[in-house]
Design a protein around this nucleic acid. Structure first.
Length: 250
DNA sequence: AACTAGCCCAACCGCGTATCC
DNA sequence: AGGATACGCGGTTGGGCTAGT
């Protein structure tokens, strides 16, 4: 047998949260901390499902949330991150302290999309709107070095890491991809992004698991003990410690 | 003043993955 | 080992608000 159901939908409230519900949720999390969303509603005396409580807390009640308008700098950062990551709102939100994925997603759909369209840029591809459809490459390939070699024969392939024709730089000429190598972002994280003594590839560092594009083994095989910067060669740049959150936009 | 259209955003829904039993 | 459930994420919806007519 698995777990019991997360909530009894017949006895849960839906729709907008009341002030009283908010207060109950805040008080409970202050006293007990986050976690175990399944049991939280009952323990806190809320007629909500755990999923709803989690969303309310993360998107609205968390004390570290930054309220108010997005700055121009945040706008540009979101655009750059979206051009790299696509609709990975949680990853983008991770680079914007105090902003939630939901908030960024909404902001993207209501403001930034229009902003890019006004600039003549396709928000989905970050390419000029009048560009031929044949070049509709929309994602960055994290393929390993072996595949990279194969794709070197295909100049239109996005994974082409030829420095003379770096597609990301073409799409974001002002985006400096000189990714800075630095220790992991977590202040309290005792162990850097190494598991079992091996470096994590860029794909793994983004949290993508069991990806065919994982190159951990390649990076490990190619690494030497004297060179800790021998991680995944993202877009032709040696990235070393692959803490994505240490990526610096300049 | 009444109606309509568009904007904004909180909340819900559905799916994939992780975890539990 | 495999089914059931929790969790987290991205997509979508719906209701409140505002500007325009």
């Amino acid at each position: 047998m698995g777990r019991s159901p997360c909530c009894e939908k017949a006895h849960t409230n839906k729709g907008a949260w009341t002030k009283e519900e908010d207060d109950r949720l805040i008080a409970y999390i202050r006293a007990h901390g986050e976690g175990c969303w399944r049991s939280l509603p009952k323990a806190a005396g809320l007629l909500r499902c755990g999923k709803s409580c989690r969303l309310r807390w993360i998107n609205y009640l968390r004390p570290d949330l930054k309220r108010g308008n997005f700055t121009e700098e945040e706008d540009e950062l979101i655009i750059k991150l979206h051009s790299l990551l696509g609709n990975k709102w949680s990853l983008i939100a991770g680079r914007l302290p105090g902003r939630t994925d939901n908030e960024i997603k909404n902001y993207w759909n209501t403001h930034i999309r229009r902003k890019l369209l006004n600039r003549g840029i396709d928000p989905a591809t970050h390419r000029p709107l009048n560009e031929p459809a044949a070049q509709d490459v929309t994602t960055i390939s994290f393929s390993g070095a072996k595949e990279e070699k194969e794709k070197m024969n295909n100049p239109s392939g996005f994974a082409n890491i030829d420095e003379k024709k770096n597609p990301v730089q073409e799409r974001c000429p002002d985006l400096n991809l000189d990714l800075r190598i630095s220790p992991p972002y977590h202040q309290s994280q005792p162990e850097p992004l190494r598991t079992g003594g091996r470096n994590l590839c860029f794909v793994c560092s983004l949290g993508v698991k069991n990806s065919k594009d994982c190159t951990c083994s390649i990076a490990t095989a190619g690494s030497s003990s004297s060179n800790s910067n021998s991680g995944y060669d993202f877009l032709g740049l040696k990235t070393g410690f692959l803490d994505y959150r240490s990526l610096e936009m300049k």
